[in-house]
Design a protein around this nucleic acid. Structure first.
Length: 319
DNA sequence: CCTCATAACTGGATGTTGAA
DNA sequence: TTCAACATCCAGTTATGAGG
């Protein structure tokens, strides 16, 4: 009920990130939404027979701006390019090679804010088979990352977080990031891929990383060590909302900002909650409530106190 | 919701520096 | 002398957001 910052975890099969397919940032966001919608069909059975899936997406969720052409272009390009991926069947120690289009059909009405994607059954295996390993990560975080490299590195961080990091030679690392043969200059790799992602994860994600490059084979940098940290800065911001306090604060504010006038009460409660002042507000309001019921102060006194002093202290700019 | 100008990003090319 | 790293530049893309 009370939402300060949703942490909506989604599960993604590992072959999605290792597939031979170079996603753009928007395409990746579309993938996240598709996978999110298919969460309840996730299966560990490699022979699961899937039905074709129809997925309706709201365009507004896919792009924070108003340029829906970009989304439509991304959807069309996904509908054109097939993806190659391997299904790992651990029990039988087999690997099944696949090639499939991810989207069989796209439908939308002109000027509609929704778009319908038809996912063929052969692609459902791609989206839903988690028997070969999967990674769980926060959907909102993944969506909020701008750079495609940040997204991929975030997935890698979530995947290897329990081991604290991973090492890799640069050739396969480039493979993970879908940048084979690109950023051949080490400075480009550093400044335009690694540092960008590092900074973005530090700002937005629950996990972040540090890296060091090594020369193992010769004179060239050819090896990377990645250490994964949980991002304290972000975690601290994620306040666990006390539902009881939240409701109390909300009901108290309703006395002065009733719903038949506007939704200020809700608005203020959420702002207080987001700034982490819920507990402070709660104890303050209890005292005010006491004063009110014992007639120490009357309602207009408290209203003025609220408007001119208390709400400002609670981080609300213009009550 | 769409269009369009422009800001920002991507990634290759070129020249310079510095260590072995 | 040589080869990799580093610094800059730049053209082609893609993202952004005001205005229609």
């Amino acid at each position: 009920m009370t939402k300060s910052k949703e942490s909506h975890i989604i599960i993604q099969p590992n072959h999605v990130s290792t597939a031979k397919y170079r996603y753009t940032s928007i395409e990746k966001n579309i993938m996240y939404h598709i996978i999110d919608k298919l969460q309840e069909v996730m299966s560990k059975d490699p022979f699961e027979v899937y039905n074709e899936q129809k997925i309706i997406l709201e365009l507004r969720q896919l792009d924070k701006n108003n340029n829906y052409n970009n989304i439509k272009r991304a959807v069309k390009s996904m509908a054109k390019k097939p993806v190659e991926f391997d299904i790992v069947i651990p029990k039988e120690n087999k690997i099944r090679k696949n090639l499939s289009l991810l989207i069989a059909a796209v439908e939308y009405e002109v000027r509609s804010k929704y778009i319908t994607l038809v996912i063929p059954s052969t692609a459902c295996v791609f989206f839903c088979y988690v028997g070969g390993g999967f990674t769980a990560f926060q959907k909102t975080v993944a969506l909020s990352l701008n750079s495609i490299h940040s997204k991929v590195l975030y997935e890698l961080c979530c995947r290897w977080a329990d081991r604290g990091g991973f090492n890799s030679d640069l050739i396969s690392f480039r493979g993970y990031l879908q940048i084979e043969g690109k950023y051949s200059q080490i400075a480009h790799l550093r400044n335009k891929v690694l540092n960008v992602a590092k900074k973005e994860l530090q700002e937005k994600a629950d996990l972040c990383f540090n890296y060091s490059l090594e020369k193992r084979g010769g004179k060239k940098y050819d090896y990377i060590n990645i250490k994964i940290f949980s991002n304290k800065k972000i975690e601290d911001k994620e306040i666990i909302v006390n539902e009881e306090h939240y409701n109390y604060v909300y009901r108290f504010l309703l006395l002065f900002y009733p719903n038949h006038i506007d939704n200020s009460a809700l608005l203020y409660t959420n702002q207080i909650s987001n700034k982490g002042f819920l507990d402070k507000a709660y104890s303050r309001f209890i005292r005010l409530d006491d004063d009110l019921t014992s007639n120490k102060k009357d309602k207009s006194d408290i209203f003025n106190l609220l408007r001119f002093v208390i709400l400002k202290e609670l981080g609300i700019s213009s009550p």
